[in-house]
Design a protein around this nucleic acid. Structure first.
Lengths: 188, 188
DNA sequence: ACATCACTAGACCAATCGGTCCAGACCTGT
DNA sequence: ACAGGTCTGGACCGATTGGTCTAGTGATGT
């Protein structure tokens, strides 16, 4: 039923198992053996599909997770009639996903890459992925009539609130942090 | 000159070296030998001062770093004449500190503890420390005349924006993300 | 039937991990 | 001078780490 069943090709099983584990335990908190066991793959397969080993796999996992996030964003803003409504829907979806993870999974990209070594490739990939999320949100804001400057600011605000929300939700083990995120802006 | 000179007692040297390294590389990204070398202390001293080893040291390091953050917050809001002004000063101070770290140090508490194992002690400590920051900000908001509900919301907003700002600043290697954080709120 | 190639399987490796242990150095009070 | 504690120094340990290597399997095209 879930997306990690056996029929998936080995490479995809590796990517998804890695994404799930990195997200929860961080890059350095996950050993190759953990990933291999979760993906039911031998070590030889890993190094066949990812010649550079763990680092390649982490980048693939973060990229795969980012695609999921972009789809969630698109689904949230698709039928929204304002930026704020889309943001609220997104927060509810993220809260639901957070619950399904056992209230413990934060940003999949930070988990897979930040935690990693002082690695410039990792940093660039992270920046690129985050920029993708922000510019996606920026487009939504523009579509709803914001001028470019305001749109960019709103998009960055959305990004930072979600990242901070993930952090706080993990610490509190509460999906409500994410769910009630939009209302926080009302205090201004 | 810096606070990590030799005259400091061994225990303090261990705490500060650990805090610095955990913040940059994460809990699992730092080995005991790294800390020992940075603190110029032998292994025996570490396990004398912290019988439970790495976990104890991480909690002590996060707590020490949290005290610094609380002092920075107090210094920012002390002479401010509004919550927004205090927030802006805080962001500038954090941006400066981020620059001094070589544009790579994020939240010291997430680095030391989140990254750690699925450890309930770590999670509780993180929650406790974060709650300390938020309630501190909440007091400032109340002092400037906000009603309790708005104050709490503002404080949580401040916290999440700073956490998200740290994440984005690391990805972009730019302290401007933190520095210009307050202006982002103007887009609403 | 055979060759080819993509892929799997896992034994194996040096390096590093967090942690234990104990001998001795250094203080203190008597 | 001696005793008792605190603290230091580092050798040592089993487990685990990411990574290498080679033998073998299975599908495909000819």
């Amino acid at each position: 039923m879930t997306s990690s069943d056996r029929p998936l090709p080995t490479k995809d099983r590796l990517i998804q198992a890695a994404a799930r584990l990195f997200r929860r335990y961080g890059y350095n908190g996950v050993g190759l053996n953990d990933i291999l066991e979760a993906a039911k793959a031998p070590k030889g397969s890993l190094y066949h599909h990812f010649p550079n080993g763990k680092t390649d796999l982490a980048i693939a996992a973060a990229t795969w997770a980012s695609d999921g996030m972009l789809r969630t964003m698109a689904a949230s803003f698709e039928n929204a009639d304002s930026f704020e409504a889309g943001f609220a829907t997104l927060c509810h979806k993220l809260a639901k996903l957070f619950e399904l993870s056992g209230q413990s999974d934060g940003c999949p990209v930070s988990g897979a890459l930040f935690d990693g070594p002082e690695n410039e490739d990792f940093r660039k990939t992270t920046d690129h992925i985050f920029e993708g999320w922000i510019s996606e949100a920026e487009h939504y804001a523009i579509r709803f009539g914001d001028n470019p400057d305001d749109a960019r600011r709103k998009a960055e605000l959305l990004f930072m609130l979600i990242e901070g929300g993930w952090t706080m939700a993990r610490a509190k083990r509460s999906s409500d942090v994410l769910r009630h995120l939009p209302e926080k802006l009302a205090a201004l």
